[in-house]
Structure formats: C-alpha cells, structure tokens
Nucleic acid binder design. Structure first.
Lengths: 386, 386
DNA sequence: AGATCGACGTCAAACGTTTGCCAAGCACCG
DNA sequence: CGGTGCTTGGCAAACGTTTGACGTCGATCT
C-alpha cells in the first residue's frame, strides 16, 4: 500500500453539504459524535483510514475494535486505536462485516397492517428484545396482500437477514413461508399461526379467548348468539371462532350462522357484517361476539344508526382491547391481549433460533384476559330461564 | 472450495424444523418460488453456483441478471442463465452488491412513536413511494428518547443506508442530525422540522393549521381561549401554537397562558394539562385548542369527569384527525392532516436526494383542513358581543 | 544458552458482487 | 484479404471486513 495519493494534506473540507444550503448557521461544527472527517478519499471512513492514521495495520484496527478479539491486541495500542477511530468518526461497515461473517444483525419483521393499533406494542416488544442482542428489525407491512408478502420476503432474503418474524401470515401462505424455511432462514410466526407448516410460533391463546367471550355472554343469560367473524384464513380468527362456537353449543345455547366473514379485520367490514345481521330481522340474536375490536366498533356504529341500543337491545364483545375502546359509547367489553409481551417473547425466540438454527424454539401461547365493560349486559327478556 | 462435506446426500430434512413438529403435512414441497436447492455447499446460492450450473463465467451471470447490463450478454445465454438462476432459487446478495456499488437500496426511517395512529399512514406513503424505486425502508422508533435516537442513527449509519428520513426530530436534536448530514448521507425531515439545520423537510403547514383552529373558535364567538400545548421542543407544536396565539391576539381576544406544556403528545399528558386548566377556576376559558388529538382526548375525559359538558361548557379543538376521533363523545372538531400524502412526498424527496446528493430537494409543506364536529359550539354566554 | 512460550502485529485470503478491460469470434467493408 | 467494428464472454481487481496463519520480539524456564 503506502502509495496512495495525498494524506492529511488539503483543506479540512467539511464533508457534506456543499450544494446550496439555505440557512447559514452551521450550528455546532463538532457534534457530540466527533468530527467524522479526515479520510483521504470521499465516502465513509474505513478501517484502512483509521489504520493509516493510527500507524498500525488495518487488521489490528479490526481486532482492537472488536470486543471479542480485543485481547489479541495490546492495551495501549487498543486505546490508541479506539481514540483515533472515535476521532475520525469511524463506523464499521456492517454490510462488509456481514459478507465475511454471514450475519447481518438484522431481522425481517413482516406485519399485515401498521395502522392496526394492536401491532405497535408488538413491534415495540420485538424491537426492544432484539436490540438487547444487537439486532435490528427491518419492518414492513403487507396489507394482507399475498403478492406483497412475496415481494417483501424477497427483499429480506436479498438482504440476508438473520431471521424473519412474520405476523402477517394467512393460512394460504404456507408454501411461500416454507420456501423461506427451506433457505434455512429461521422463521418465526407471531400472533398469527399457520399450523400446517409446523413453524415455531408465539400467539395468544385464541382458544381461551373465544371461550372467555362465550362464557361471559352465556353467564349473562344470553341464549341466542352470533359471531361477526374476521377473515377465516387467519388462524387467530378461526381459532377464537371455533372455541366460541364450541362453548356456546356445549351450553345448549344457539349460535346463528351469519354465513359470511369479514374480508379484512376492519371497521368497514364490521359495518357490513352488522348490516347483514340486522337483515335477519326477528331472528336477531341478543349478543354478538365480534372477532376483533375494529369489527366491533363498526358494528356498534351500525347498531346505533338503526336505533338499536347497546347493551340494552344487543350485547357486543370485542377482541384485542385496542387503546381507545374503553372510551367509545358504550365502553367495549373485550378480550385483552398483551402485545408488547408477545413481541418480547417472539424476539426472545428469534434470538434463540439464530443462535441454534437447527433447534427451533418451542411455540408459545399467551393467556388473554376478559375486560368487562358496558357493552354487555343480560338480555332484556331472558329467553328460557330454564 | 469443492472439498466440503456431503452434498445432496441424506434425507430431505425439511430445513430448520427437526424438533417436535406437531402436524405432519409438509404441504407443497415445491413452492411457487422454485426449489431453492442445489448449491454444493451450505448457505445460499451464489453467482458462482449458478455459473457452474449454467456453464458460464460468473461475471456473465451477474450481467445476465442485471437489467442494466443485460445487453452485454447474448439473448440465448441470458435466457439460459435466467432459467438456471430461477431454478436454483438464486437471490442476489444485496450486502455484497452494496459493498461494490455503494448502494444498499435501504433507507432509514426514524419515527418517534409507532403507536401514534398518525404515523401509520405516513409510513405507508413512504414505503409505497420507496418501493417504486426499489428501495426499502428500515423503520425504527425512538420513543422520543435522544439516547435512543443516537443509537438508532448509529445503526443506520453502520448499515450504510442510502438516506435517512427522520420524523422523530426534536429541536434539540440539531447537532446529532448535522453529524449525519456531515457524513454525506442524505437526510430528510418528515412532519417535524428543525429549522436551524437547514435540512430539507416535508411538513404540514402548522402555521395554517393553528390559524384555522383559532379562526374557527373566534368565529364561534369565543373570546377567552387557551391552548393545551404539546412538547415545545417539537417544531410542529411550536408553530401551530404560535399561529394560534397570533390569530387570537390579532382578533383582540384573550389567551390564557397555562404556563406548562405536555412532555409527550399523549392522552395522559392531556389529562394533566386539563386538570391544570380546571385548577384556574373562575378564570377558565370557554374554548381550548389541544395541540393534538391525544391531548384533546385526555382533556375531554377530565372535563367529563369534572362535570363539564363539551361543547356546552367548553369547546375543544384537536389536531391530526386520528382514525377514531369522530366516534368519541362528543365527536372531535380537529385539524386533518394527510399522512399518506406526506409520506409519499417525503419518499419522493428521498429518491431525488439519493439521485443527486449535492442538490438537496426543496422543503415542502402540505395544507391542513379543519374538520368541524360536535366538540365546538358558541360559548353559552357570549362575552362582549361587541 | 538454547528452547519454549506468550504477547502483539502483519499478511493475505476469503466473503459475493460489479465492472473495466481484454481477447476471441464474426461480419462487413473497401 | 486486411482492417474495422461489433458482440460476446472471461479475467481479475476492487469494495470493507474478518481471521487463520505466520512472524518477531522479549521474557521465562530448564
């Protein structure tokens, strides 16, 4: 080497912002993070640059800066190198590092809908847990579009993420998920399961949740019930629906089959289903279980518009306990999930899966909890008090 | 290489799921994305592997697969190579590619709080626009913690993102932001501005928004007003607050100075400010401008709890028009922003900034719009009808 | 004193791509 | 038939790291 052009010659150069920058104030020329200057080429500072400046070989710099290898280099040298590196604002190039080490310290996180309030705590839990292990989530949403899921998976594969967490899985996505698993990329399912794949998952106990909802309504005395179902290609909805039905039937009460389900777990679809329900006329149940809060909110709205009072005329149970549902009218009885905890756990599982890819972590379920509020009450005229 | 252990010997192995797998069905052995097999080593398929299988040099494969270079290779060869690559499930290693090309096709996106409903559409807008240009957002939240912001910025720098979009900027973050800019990483501010830095930004017109809110209340006849301020180190709140005050004063009405501001733009802080306001007793204004909807919701709750009726006793204007605020009681009058549009625009700016890093794109502002609902009404006893 | 050892550094070969350059082959033209 | 130009494909040098395999140098042991 040695024969590179000039060294620390030339003007300091204030790397960055040469082109028209409107306001003058450069404000704090030396930020807290150091000058970040002094490479003899443009582009970021490299190991070479630091090595030259510190007067050692670049492999020494690499070792000095890697805690795991730091004992391979003398104490004073290490301190010196560290000082120089900090001074120059060196940041290691994780892409290059990953090329060599085969680890990108990045985990793909794929969710269905960032706008669903339920997802934020989950992401927070994941991010916090991953950060503890030096990993960073690469989050994307699919909007429940299979084509988009495929594209996103492609992106994360190209980026060679260390693992993928999918919380956007629909039952039909099994093949494409298995394709990822076949690439030996650890794949974890969060919140939504796809049992046929046998992939490790961390979900809420939808079975328990559905049972909870049913039992509550039965205990109140309801004998005519119905469900406003979420998309039936999502395990969570199927499971909680099945548990609800099972419990209702076992109690000898009757469940009206609406014959349709929401295409997306959204307010709008909740409205549609509610209208469908009202169309049943005299057949109408005294209580409904909306398979998630958004559907419940949509339904409440339709009920109110058609003069039906909740809970006097009809009781409504939701699912998820979204942030504001205790503030709508009437405050919604719902099943509470602990999103952040779930995120944290799946983060934990991910770390484990990366550490030993051949031994996938066991699946987990979290218990839900019923939040009783004002949207449920005994039926006005208790049918068949038995 | 060559002398690695076994090849395609051994059982199929169902990659990554040896441990207890409950359901049997392997489901669709060949997914739509191809077999993804047949490298003579473990780990992902490389150019070398494809080249060997196709009987050409790996540089030829590289070219055949790059649309921009594809004309450098003969038609039949290209088709053959493409077929083999698809067959083998080859995915290019973006890390390695980025090392050579200096482009990661990744953009860091930093937001304050993923749980804030306002942010989801913004992220959607950004993601959609970026995807059109083959970029992928790397999204993280800082929870408005400066230390966390620093960590996150460090992460994205280490990953050599092509640009960074910061929507979590507080005014005090100027130095650390400039540190990024000094590294010649294009940096765009979304929603929140930091004027001192002169960085390009895309924000809502908070000046217009604050004016809109003030004018509405003044037009209703209110003469005694107050603001429930958001964090005063965030440009958006400062700006809309200033505009509000200016308009109120110009109209000769009086604004009560609460002497405090929310530490975070959250429901809880809204409650605190509302209690502070009530403590003023007989001094109480007839209308308040909450600088965002969460604060407004918190305040509404406190008002209701203390027997104050809205809008009869006190009018409330919010800001953001969050998804559910038309469904609380009373439906909230608020200023609507178009988050997705903002996201899209900042995505656009980002693409431009990456294309020509020396010519930062001009800043933009989007006009807000007042949504009048039931939380505002004329004061019960119009003071000084003039 | 010679062998051995530990500590500290350097060398150089990867990792998977991209790409400037060269060479071979071919067609075409004068 | 020689020259020119075009097409196609191979070669090899990067990009910034990591890391196994040496060296070198003192110090310690026998």
């Amino acid at each position: 080497m040695g024969a590179r052009s000039g060294r620390r010659a030339g003007a300091p150069r204030r790397a960055g912002m040469d082109g028209a920058v409107p306001p003058p104030a450069p404000a704090a020329p030396d930020g807290p993070a150091g000058p970040a200057a002094a490479a003899d080429h443009d582009g970021p500072v490299t190991l070479q640059d630091v090595a030259r400046a510190a007067g050692v070989h670049y492999s020494t710099v690499s070792r000095a800066l890697d805690p795991a290898q730091a004992r391979r280099v003398g104490g004073t040298t290490r301190l010196h190198v560290e000082a120089v590196a900090r001074e120059m604002g060196y940041r290691r190039h994780l892409g290059a590092s990953g090329l060599k080490r085969g680890r990108t310290h990045t985990v793909g996180v794929i969710v269905a809908d960032l706008g669903n309030p339920f997802i934020a705590p989950v992401l927070r839990g994941i991010a916090n847990r991953l950060e503890e292990s030096g990993l960073m989530p690469l989050t994307t949403e699919t909007q429940d579009d299979p084509a988009r899921l495929a594209r996103v998976l492609n992106h994360v594969v190209e980026r060679r993420v260390d693992a993928v967490i999918v919380s956007a899985a629909r039952l039909g996505n099994a093949p494409i998920l298995l394709d990822i698993a076949r690439r030996r990329i650890p794949l974890l399912l969060a919140d939504r399961n796809v049992p046929q794949t046998g992939l490790p998952s961390c979900t809420h106990d939808n079975d328990a949740g559905g049972t909870l909802a049913a039992r509550h309504l039965l205990d109140l005395g309801h004998r005519h019930l119905a469900q406003l179902r979420g998309p039936q290609d999502v395990s969570s909805f199927v499971d909680r629906g099945a548990a609800f039905s099972r419990t209702v039937t076992a109690a000898g009460a009757v469940e009206l089959d609406l014959g349709d389900a929401a295409r997306t777990p959204s307010l709008r679809e909740g409205q549609r289903l509610a209208r469908l329900l009202l169309a049943r006329g005299r057949d109408r149940p005294t209580a409904v279980f909306a398979q998630n809060d958004l559907i419940a909110l949509g339904a409440l709205e339709v009920f109110a518009d058609s003069g039906l009072r909740c809970p006097a005329d009809i009781s409504v149970v939701g699912y998820d306990d979204l942030p504001q549902v205790d503030r709508v009218t009437p405050p919604l009885t719902t099943v509470r999930l602990h999103g952040e905890e779930l995120g944290r756990l799946v983060g934990e599982m991910t770390v484990a899966a990366i550490a030993s890819p051949d031994r996938p972590p066991p699946s987990l379920t979290l218990p839900p909890r019923l939040m009783v509020r004002a949207s449920t009450a005994p039926p006005r005229v208790p049918q068949e008090p038995t």
